[in-house]
Every structure is written in C-alpha cells, then in structure tokens.
Write a protein that binds this DNA or RNA. Structure first.
Length: 456
RNA sequence: GGCCACGUGGCGGAGUGGUUACGCAGAGGUCUGCAAAACCUCGUACCCCGGUUCAAUUCCGGGCGUGGCCUCCA
C-alpha cells in the first residue's frame, strides 16, 4: 500500500517515493531556544513524530533519518541572555533541555539527530562562500546578502512573484541591499555579541542559512521530506530553498514539503497581549489551562484529533474529550497483551497524508470490538502504542493533577458502600456513591465485584 | 493594501459529484436495588449568492466571516 503526502510545492497529494528507501531522510525546523516552547510549537513536533513513526514502520527503523535542528544563535537569544543576565550557552542549553523533555512528555520519539547552529559554523561559512562564488550572494558593508534576483525560481514554494513582494513590502529597506527582497546570510557582531571568524570578519549567520547548512551536513544536498509550520513557508523555507539550491547548482533541496496548519486558543490567536499564551510546560505541570494539569499523551491525542493541515482550535473541551478516551482505553488496556501487527485500516488512514482523524475512527471501531474480541483489544493497544499515545499507563496516570486520588480512601468507601448494600441500606450506599462522584470516581457493580474508575 | 488557507449537525471532526464517516454530549430501550459499564435504536449537517451538471456540501465565479504570511511574534 502506498504512502501519499500533500506536497506544498505542488499543492496536491502525491505518491511518496524516497530517493533511497534504505535511507529515507526528513528535516523539520526545530526551536529557537530562548524560551519555553508553547503549544503552537508542539504541533509540528507531534505531527512529524507520527510521520517519523510511519516511515520507520514502512521502511524499517534503521532506514529513516530524522533531523530536527536546535537554533542556538539568534538575536532573540542574545537579547534574552542580556535581560536575564545569564550566559548565552546557559540559556540555550537550558532551554533546549526543557524542549527535549517536553517533546518526550508528549509521547514523541527523539529525532535521529538534533544538530545545533553553533556546531555547524564551518559548514555555514563554507556554504556562504559557495553562494558568493556562484554569484548568488554579495558582500556589502560587512554583511553578506543573498541576491534574490539571481534565483529565477525564487518564490516557487510560497507562489509569490517578486512583483507581489515589492508591492506588498512595508519594511524599510536597508541601504546596502541591492534588492529589497535580498536577505542576510552573514552579519557583523560587535564585541558583546556572539561571533565567529569568517572571510567577512567577525560575525554570525542570518536566519535561514543555518537550516540549509544543517540539512546539507546531515542529510546531503537533496533529501526527501522537509517539514515545519505553515508560518515558516515564507520567508524561511523559501529562502532555504534559494540558498541550498543556489549552493548546489539548482539541485532540488527536498522533494516533498509538508506544512502543518496554525493553532488558535479558544478561538483566538495565541498571543501574550491577549493573555492566552500557553506553554507546553504550563499544560503539563501547572493549572493554567482549564484550571488543571494535563498528561502529555492527552495533549498528543488532542492534537491528532484534527488533520495536520487544518487549522486547530486548542480548547479545554477538546482536552477533556481526549482525556476521556484515554481514561476509557487505559482502564481496559493496562496490563493487556498487544498484537504484533499494526491494524491495516489504521495504516491505511495514516498512509493517506497522515489522516489521523480517520485513524481515530479506526481506533474507536477497535475499542467497540474489544468488548467482544481479544484480537481487537490487542490491535487497539498496538495501534495506540504505535502512535505514541499509550504505553501501558494505568488509568490514574491520566488523572494528573486531580485533587483527590487517595486509593485506600476510595477502596474503604467502596467497602462501606458494599456493606450498606448488603444490609439493603440503599440510601447510605447511594450517599457514598455520590461522595465518590465528587472525587471524580465512578463505580461499577459487576458480577465479580465493584470496580472504580476515574472520570473527567 | 497584496498573496494564501479555512468555514460541515449542540460540540469536535473526516470525506465525497448521486449511497451511514467517526467520537463526545443528548433522547429512548435492555440490564441494574438504583446507577454505571456493555449492547440496541434515534439526529438526515455541509457560510451566503450565482454558474456548470440529469445531480453540488463536493467543481467554477463572486460575497461574507475567521485565520496566516508579507513585519519581531510559530
């Protein structure tokens, strides 16, 4: 069965054919590490994790290379380090560590490689030198700039013409630019800014060149998939293409470009000024969203309930729904066996441009079937495990941050209630059930005794 | 202002030129001391206006709305 991917370059779904099935290569733009990642940043992490898992399944774990960079040189980093009176290295390493922990908590595998800009400086300088030699870049007042008119294909990803960009431009153009669209490859640093020696003096790279250099270094001149948020399509990815293809004599940088849609929070743009800015860490560990904490896999499942290219509205209600599913599933699946094979319909949905809502429909079918069929139950567990939304957690694990979760107290109350029931004191039995209910505990009287579960 | 994306039943959310997506919530039923769980049944949705078509939610055009990029913010 084939894998199809919506390719932003072509604006259509295409059959995925890797350059080398023995080494399928994917590059995803990672974070600029100056602050905690927010929930909008989590979307590409989650989406491309699922793609990574799918590719590994199709081509074999050893045959997929996933690179997600860490940008640790950037003007926001410099500003933040000054503001906090910490060294740049402490800031970037500390932030990168938090990012990796967040990604792990979200049920995402570590990428094969997580290169840093600071470790790629020779390659960046070399690539800029090549661009200058190829007449795609020029030096002006200590800066090196990419000369956009030197690239006849410029704009092919975002489908913008140079005329449109000039017409729409509202920015003040730096005087040393030959053309308003020209962008910086290298810029001078002063003694208070991080810098590296280069043929153009002490300086640092501009935004965009680092991804071109890291992609080339770790995946070669051309690779299969390049991913990121739709907001990066222009100018970042457009410029990446211009740089890499300019340095590689026009060889296409990536065959498939994938972009995840934007995220809103409760129907509004997430912004600090609106006060709805929410970090992954706050969702996991604080009670800032809906007044409660959320398990990372609840966040992942909630994210996957919308197709990756659609806009997503991040709401408390959506998290409650995702948590309900995991509470239901884990109650039955904890400790249960799982099948070896991935369910075919699930794979079919995922192979269709990562149709995760379609995959969820398959999971619901398996859940329904699991009440009768051990095979469906095993398949469900395997499928959830594959997606990284369930790894044999207990039900209570998903109830993070619940105020009252005292197991012995719960069990004592259940024992009291059963005594009352035996004595036909149903009023007392119901009172105890109500008490448990306020603790978000529901009980079920079954043929083999009374069981309890956590509810949303 | 320019370019682009999206608009599906109470909510979430796939998909399709004519046939039930699916989930949550809700209604009824079986079961139960009563519940819950489980199972069965139920909603006839596709922003507005034109056009193409035997037939459009699905294609085309226009409008409205929301959002993105163009500008530091993902």
């Amino acid at each position: 069965m084939a894998l199809t991917i919506y390719n932003t370059l072509a604006r259509e779904k295409q059959l995925f054919t890797p350059i080398d099935p023995k080494n399928v290569r994917m590059y995803v733009c990672g974070p600029t590490v100056y602050d905690y990642a927010h929930i909008g940043n989590a979307r590409p992490v989650i989406v491309f994790d699922v793609l990574f898992r799918l590719l590994r399944h199709i081509y074999g774990e050893e045959h997929v290379t996933y690179v997600r960079n860490i940008t640790d040189v950037e003007d926001k980093i410099i500003a933040r380090a000054v503001e906090r009176k910490v060294s740049i290295r402490d800031l970037t390493e500390g932030t990168a560590k938090i990012y990796q922990e967040d990604a792990l908590a979200l049920g995402c595998l570590a990428p094969t490689l997580e290169p840093r800009v600071t470790e790629t400086m020779p390659e960046i300088v070399a690539m800029i030198e090549r661009l200058v030699a190829n007449n795609h870049a020029y030096v002006a007042e200590g800066h090196v700039l990419f000369h956009v008119p030197s690239d006849p294909d410029y704009g092919k990803l975002s489908r913008r013409s140079l005329d449109e960009m000039i017409a729409g431009a509202r920015v003040e153009v730096a005087p040393y630019k030959k053309n308003p669209q020209d962008f910086i490859l290298w810029k001078p640093s002063d003694e208070n800014q991080p810098g590296w020696n280069s043929p153009w003096g002490w300086g640092r790279p501009g935004w965009h060149i680092e991804c071109s250099a890291m992609g080339e270094k770790h995946l070669g001149e051309a690779f299969d998939i390049h991913g990121g948020g739709i907001d990066l399509q222009f100018p970042h990815h457009e410029n990446e293409i211009a740089q890499s293809e300019g340095a590689h004599h026009g060889k296409p940088l990536a065959n498939y470009w994938m972009h995840n849609g934007f995220l809103q929070v409760e129907g509004e743009k997430m912004s600090k000024s609106l006060g709805n800015f929410i970090t992954i860490r706050e969702l996991l560990a604080e009670k800032k969203f809906g007044g409660q904490q959320w398990h990372g896999k609840v966040l992942k499942l909630a994210m996957l309930s919308t197709h990756y290219r659609q806009p997503i509205d991040w709401t408390v209600d959506r998290l409650v729904q995702a948590r309900s599913m995991l509470l239901d599933w884990s109650r039955v699946l904890h400790g249960a066996p799982q099948s070896d094979d991935l369910h075919n319909e699930l794979l079919g949905a995922l192979r269709d441009d990562l149709n995760t809502p379609g995959a969820l429909a398959v999971l619901h079918g398996l859940w329904k079937g699991s009440h009768l069929s051990i095979n469906d139950l095993r398949s469900l567990k395997r499928a959830l495990n594959f997606l990284g939304v369930y790894e044999d957690e207990k039900q209570v694990d998903f109830a993070v941050g619940y105020e009252v979760l005292d197991v012995s107290k719960i069990e004592n109350l259940i024992a009291e209630r059963n005594a009352a029931r035996k004595a036909k004191n149903f009023a007392e039995a119901d009172r105890i059930r109500d008490e448990l209910s306020t603790m978000k505990i529901a009980i079920e009287d079954g043929p083999s005794g009374t069981t309890w579960k956590v509810v949303s």
